[in-house]
Simulated assay, not measured.
Amino acid sequence: MRPEPNLRPADPAQAKRQRWLVLTAFALGALTLLFLLLAQPALYLRMADGLRWRLGLPALAQIDYEQRLALAQQRGESQAGPCAVLLFGDSHLQGLPGSALGAEVSNFAIAGEPAERLAQRIVAYSSVKQSRHIVLLSGANDLVTGRSAAQTAASLSAVLAQIPATTTVSLLGLPPSTQPARPALNAALQALCTARPGCSFVSLEALGDGLGALSPELAATDGIHLSAAGYGRLAVAIQADLPKHAQCAHST
């Protein structure tokens, strides 16, 4: 039989030194990372957002952007009179100049915001209680994060519930895109509008290429957002609905 090697008992002092070295190296690495993150907060945000994305949570940078913009909007919203048309939604509406509608407009849309968070934000706007007409276009960002058409429609139903019954609403369907749940969501939004008095569903299918995407001449370079020509067509679609519900905005 092969003899077993002699196993000398470990030197307690040496084992203690090794543990100390490991702990010291770990502490130095942690401090180095901390100093790096403090010196470059953008790097921290990228790392944190990467982790939050894997956990299905919204990016910190996006939440910060939404909160800052919402506060800025609320500081000036007292200037929105009862004849103002209020816009709430995501980037599709945020980039629309109010002057393109030929009416008094207060644009409270925020790029990247899902309908789920819009339902929480809209309650902070006192102008919603006095406005005669509101335009809504939201839901695409919910689908991007994996929410279903039914869940997104429920969020938009919660948004509508915050709007007085006497206020008329233009509820816009999602513009053409390759999101599989988009047709189902648009159908659900149309049903929501049908069930609410004073709500008009505005389809944006005319902005598409017939194959499920935006027409190339109406799309920005990313193929998702609208180009200048696309915003012109969006304004026309909204304008066509305004005279039915917002004569106040067109009065002289």
Rank of each mutant, 00 (worst) to 15 (best):
Q18C: 13
R54A: 11
R147G: 03
S78D: 00
A111G: 04
V144P: 07
G198E: 01
F108M: 10
G146V: 06
F26M: 12
E104T: 05
S215R: 15
L207I: 12
S200R: 14
L174N: 01
V144S: 08
A27D: 12
K16E: 11
Q62K: 08
G56C: 05
E116K: 00
Y125T: 09
Q247P: 04
L23Q: 13
L71D: 02
Q130A: 02
A165H: 07
Y125E: 03
G146H: 10
D90R: 03
A188Q: 00
Y231S: 00
P175Y: 03
L36I: 07
K16H: 15
P82G: 08
L172D: 00
L234P: 12
A228P: 08
Q14N: 07
M47L: 06
G50Y: 11
S157Q: 12
A10Q: 14
Y231D: 05
P175C: 08
P164F: 02
A235Y: 03
K16I: 15
C199Y: 04
A161R: 13
Q190D: 11
W53D: 10
P58A: 09
A13R: 11
A153Y: 06
P5H: 11
S157Y: 02
L242K: 08
R233H: 13
E77D: 03
Q62A: 07
F35H: 06
R19M: 14
G212P: 10
A30H: 06
Q239C: 09
A235W: 13
G139T: 13
R233A: 07
P58E: 07
A111Q: 04
A158S: 06
L60E: 02
R46C: 00
L43S: 00
L172R: 04
G146L: 12
A124N: 11
L160H: 01
A109I: 03
L38I: 14
V128A: 00
Q190T: 01
G56H: 09
S148T: 04
I163R: 01
D241G: 12
G223M: 10
A124F: 09
H250M: 08
G208W: 09
G102E: 13
Q14Y: 12
Q62F: 03
E104P: 04
P58I: 07
Q120T: 10
A72D: 07
L172Q: 00
P97N: 08
D142H: 13
P5D: 10
A84R: 11
Y65R: 15
A124E: 11
S177C: 11
L38V: 10
Q73W: 05
V85L: 13
S138R: 00
S91N: 14
I134W: 11
A206S: 05
K244W: 02
L214V: 15
H250S: 14
E4D: 10
L234Y: 01
C193R: 01
T252C: 05
A27C: 05
G98C: 12
T252W: 14
T152M: 07
G102Y: 12
P58R: 13
I63L: 10
A229T: 05
L93I: 01
A195P: 14
K16T: 15
A124V: 12
A59K: 06
Q74R: 09
Y65N: 08
H225I: 00
L36G: 15
A25V: 05
P12K: 02
